[in-house]
Design a protein around this nucleic acid. Structure first.
Length: 263
DNA sequence: AGCCAGGGTCTGC
DNA sequence: GCAGACCATGGC
């Protein structure tokens, strides 16, 4: 099924898919192919319009996924009133923060700890291949919590995820049992949701904040990794402005991408 | 060889 | 509450 989504302020698919927030997108010519919720998704931009080809016809879902409810044009105008933030926005103005499936996001950022992006992608790819549902063309869905809840660390050995394997299994068990679930988290404040996420063995403040921002839509949450800590110290000694703070997570994405790949 | 990568846990003060 | 060791793996 094909449909179009209007994205105010446009989107740079290249920057958005490869700025360290999502790990299951590939570029194929001028098309971007992602695996999302067990669906192979093909995307292309036409001006400010996103053309999506996917089996999942729930337009609401894709609106959510690509943050279509947010006017990035207005956001960027706001961000550029901060002269320290402006160069980060101008460096890759087409970045959007995606709202991704809960369990996949949780696992992905558990895997991300003390790790680099290419290796994160590799581990996730091997996890899907081993325990995810087969899709067309040799693709695999991200496994569900129930798919993984009965596994052992030995079962995860082929992933070469190192010390993170036991963390993944505790996340799988707590999500499969409903002890930690998206429905609960959505009702909680940032602080309480963070606390609940941190009951998972191997989930600390940074991973929890990534889940809050990239899956639960808390765009005011700023995950602080080493790059962001450095960037904030050097470029934003007084923090973000009061006007920007409610969208701090989105500003973070521009800052993170700029400090990592800019010069 | 040593350092770093979108950290967290555990121990000891 | 906070610093430091330790944790697997791979690229540079």
């Amino acid at each position: 099924m094909n449909f179009k989504i209007n994205l105010p302020g446009g989107m740079d698919l290249d920057a958005t898919c490869f700025c360290g927030q999502a790990f299951r997108w590939e570029k194929s010519g001028d098309t971007f192919v992602g695996i999302v919720n067990g669906d192979i998704v093909n995307c292309k931009m036409d001006g400010d319009t996103l053309i999506v080809s996917a089996e999942n016809e729930n337009e609401e879902f894709w609106h959510n996924y690509f943050g279509a409810q947010l006017d990035y044009s207005a956001l960027k105008t706001l961000f550029c009133t901060d002269k320290a933030l402006e160069p980060c926005v101008k460096y890759a103005p087409g970045i959007r923060v995606l709202r991704q499936p809960f369990y996949e996001t949780l696992c992905s950022f558990i895997i991300s700890q003390n790790n680099n992006i290419p290796r994160i992608k590799g581990i996730i790819s091997r996890l899907c291949e081993a325990y995810g549902k087969p899709l067309l063309n040799g693709n695999f869905a991200f496994p569900s919590a129930k798919d993984m809840a009965g596994l052992t660390v030995e079962d995860l050995a082929p992933l070469r995820s190192g010390f993170r394997a036991k963390y993944l299994l505790d996340a799988a068990k707590k999500v499969a049992s409903g002890e930690v679930c998206e429905e609960k988290l959505l009702q909680l404040s940032n602080e309480d949701a963070r606390k609940l996420l941190c009951t998972i063995f191997g989930v600390g403040p940074k991973v929890a904040d990534c889940v809050l921002l990239y899956s639960l839509g808390r765009v005011d949450v700023i995950p602080m990794d080493v790059h962001m800590k450095r960037a904030m110290q050097e470029r934003f000694p007084n923090g973000l402005t009061q006007d920007v703070a409610p969208y701090g997570g989105i500003a973070q994405q521009y800052i993170f991408h700029h400090t990592r790949t800019g010069k």
